[in-house]
């Protein structure tokens, strides 16, 4: 029975946000530990049905096997919950946009599962990059569903055009940063040094864009925007600050102090330790925080009315007065 006080789509979508976040963490760890091919077959696991793979071999085996198999199992949880969400959105009175997004989420999760499988079957870094970029996209869709379901389909009060545009730009910039990051994380050793140079430059430029957009979002939502938009924009600026620290840390954890830029005296007195736990946390944390930033940017965009079809400028001019009442 549908209760007027229980917003089931929001509850399921909120749960899916958390479950997907955990899946993104495990995926990022799989990449950090180069564990994607720890199970060389798919959809089976070393010849076993994936769900019947012996627990002792999973948890007691090599670390990378534990990560990869766990990532696959958790992926099925994400897939099932997405189907549940789509069913709930189908039955529940939600906005058409939520319903469309739920359909997109199902399509994406199926696609993501298949891409993940083919990444293993083809042992392809190119497919791995697609897999790494589709994950955050799915996360963004799920966050959008959760944010929109919260409002029961009601459109938000429009912010200023600047806030709306900045929020939309932030979603794009945060996602492009994840795309550039995925290219760096799944870098094939056969590529030319100039490609890496270009990607690092792109990633740094993207970081500048995200910082600029984050700061602009705070300024633009300070007045004339909803409290939600103001809160999200401040949270984003904080996350961006943390992300810059983690980004620098990720470089140091992998290559040591940037020796080509710093004087010799600034170099680290101890060598970097490959595969250290702290290094893995920093590098993985950078990737995960990037995805959280994308989710936060989507929430801000919705709170700021950036994704509303009705032109914000028209509403502000009063042409559409009452449209958002």
């Amino acid at each position: 029975m549908q209760s007027s006080t229980v917003n089931l789509p929001r509850i399921v979508a909120g749960t899916l946000v958390v479950v997907t976040g955990l899946q993104l963490c495990s995926g990022a760890l799989v990449t950090t530990y180069d564990a994607a091919m720890a199970v060389p077959d798919w959809p089976s696991t070393y010849g076993h049905n994936m769900f019947l793979f012996p627990l002792r071999e999973w948890l007691g085996g090599p670390f990378d096997l534990m990560l990869e198999h766990g990532h696959r199992l958790w992926g099925t949880v994400v897939g099932l919950l997405t189907l549940v969400l789509a069913g709930v959105c189908w039955k529940w009175p939600v906005a058409p946009a939520v319903r469309s997004l739920a359909v997109a989420a199902v399509a994406l999760v199926v696609l993501q599962g298949l891409v993940g499988g083919f990444r293993v079957l083809l042992d392809s870094q190119t497919v791995a990059k697609v897999h790494a970029c589709a994950g955050p996209l799915f996360f963004a869709v799920v966050v959008a569903i959760a944010a929109l379901a919260r409002r029961g389909g009601e459109a938000v009060r429009p912010s200023t055009p600047l806030a709306a545009r900045t929020a939309a730009g932030l979603v794009g910039a945060a996602y492009l940063q994840l795309v550039a990051g995925a290219q760096l994380r799944h870098l094939d050793a056969a590529v030319d040094p100039r490609t890496f140079h270009f990607l690092v430059g792109l990633h740094l430029l993207g970081a500048v864009a995200v910082v600029g957009l984050g700061a602009t979002a705070v300024a633009a939502t300070r007045s004339g925007a909803s409290r939600g938009a103001w809160g999200w924009s401040r949270a984003i600026l904080f996350l961006v600050g943390c992300q810059i620290v983690l980004g620098g840390g990720a470089w140091v954890a992998k290559y040591g102090a940037p020796s080509a830029l710093l004087p010799e005296a600034w170099r680290m007195s101890q060598p970097v330790v490959a595969r250290s736990g702290s290094g893995a946390v920093i590098v993985t944390g950078h990737a995960v925080l990037g995805m959280l930033l994308l989710g936060a940017a989507v929430a801000l965009a919705i709170a700021a009315g950036a994704l509303a079809r009705r032109p914000v400028a028209a509403a502000v001019r009063g042409v559409g007065k009452g449209a958002f009442a």
Partner: peptide, 29 residues
């Protein structure tokens, strides 16, 4: 109350396609 479609499915499809195509850029030699 306004129940306008905020994200039309076609837009979602375009975003997904473009993003995934971009993410696969730089074929593995």
């Amino acid at each position: 109350m306004n129940r306008q479609p905020i994200l039309p499915p076609t837009l979602v499809l375009v975003v997904v396609t473009v993003s995934l195509a971009a993410s696969g850029c730089g074929r593995t030699p």
